[in-house]
């Protein structure tokens, strides 16, 4: 997932800059011992921060996903009730004038409300994943200021093109180097990115079920669901500049020439049931592996995540 590539010094600085400045020590060798003594606590602090952020954004995802599920459920229920209204046995209520019409209007309004709520849950999920990606990209710890400066400081952005921000690849706590931390974090975040795209398709489909006559407000895969969505998706590498459309959803570790997304409006009840189940199943998220990663990292850092 290129989106998750950590910003290396070479990417942050143009090559011309590199040429014009003679590099004092040409090998990005392990830092001098004094520096590494100072670097390690700063790197540890930073990693603790980023991992606890990852853990809390995972919780945020879980809660947004579950509220999204319940809004989707309510939306589908209201929609089906409305669809069945004409054939519904109303008994004595039959005599009331316009009862069906009024009921339909009410169910329509309900659907509108749930649609808005569902969309906002989706937005929350996007936000959670973006935060995860940010945490994932901020795991390196760079030295700022010049080396002869008495005050040594560290930050998340590279100040020196020789500084890879990983302390020369040494282990930060016990065993794992910065790049191992990054690898695990990427593995974890990738699941959420992939799942988010599946959820997008579901949101799109669910928002498209309409209370009016069929095929009037059907959304398409290339439609933006809210202002700024495509910018967010680009951050997550889910937007293709080629097609000017979001990347089609797919399953983890499955290389396939995904066919174009075809939105089917007015799905039947069975399809809606499958949509809701798919929402719940979180096909791209391997919760077991995520727990494993968090407990591994927790052990490494001597903190309890989750």
């Amino acid at each position: 997932m290129e989106a998750l590539e950590s910003p290396t010094p070479s990417s942050s600085y143009s090559s011309s800059y590199l040429k014009s400045q003679p590099i004092p020590s040409s090998t990005p060798s392990p830092l001098p011992s004094l520096m590494s003594r100072l670097w390690r606590p700063a790197a540890q602090r930073n990693l603790r921060n980023q991992w606890s952020k990852l853990a809390s954004h995972r919780q945020q995802w879980a809660s947004s996903s579950s509220s999204g599920k319940s809004h989707a459920n309510s939306l589908v229920n209201a929609h089906l009730s409305q669809r069945y209204m004409p054939s519904l046995e109303l008994g004595v209520l039959n005599d009331m004038p316009d009862i069906r019409k009024k009921a339909c209007r009410k169910l329509c309004k309900q659907q509108e409300r749930y649609r808005i709520k569902l969309l906002s849950s989706y937005k929350d999920m996007v936000a959670a994943v973006i935060q995860m990606v940010n945490a994932c990209r901020s795991m390196r710890c760079y030295q700022t200021g010049t080396s002869n400066c008495t005050l040594v400081q560290f930050s998340n952005s590279a100040g020196d093109q020789n500084d890879t921000g990983d302390g020369g690849g040494v282990s930060v706590f016990v065993f794992l180097s910065i790049s191992s931390h990054e690898k695990l974090a990427k593995q974890l975040v990738r699941m959420f990115i992939m799942e988010l795209n599946v959820k997008r398709l579901l949101v799109l489909e669910l928002l498209s079920i309409s209370c009016e006559v069929p095929q009037d407000i059907g959304l398409h895969w290339g439609d933006q669901l809210y202002q700024g969505e495509f910018d967010n998706l680009s951050t997550l590498n889910l937007f293709s500049e080629e097609t000017c459309e979001p990347v089609p959803p797919k399953l983890m570790d499955r290389k396939s020439d995904t066919p174009a997304v075809q939105c089917k409006n007015q799905p039947n009840p069975e399809v809606l049931q499958v949509y809701l189940t798919t929402w719940l199943a979180e096909v791209n998220i391997n919760a077991h592996r995520i727990d494993e990663i968090f407990s591994l990292i927790g052990e490494e850092m001597h903190v309890s995540l989750s």
Partner: peptide, 28 residues
Amino acid sequence: RLQVLQDPSNYGALNCIDGIRDEVLRKQ
């Protein structure tokens, strides 16, 4: 739900995701 989930024709737009049916079934 299993029966509904087994029928590929119930996956609507999700059919564009290769292998979705097997994965949903597996998870369930």
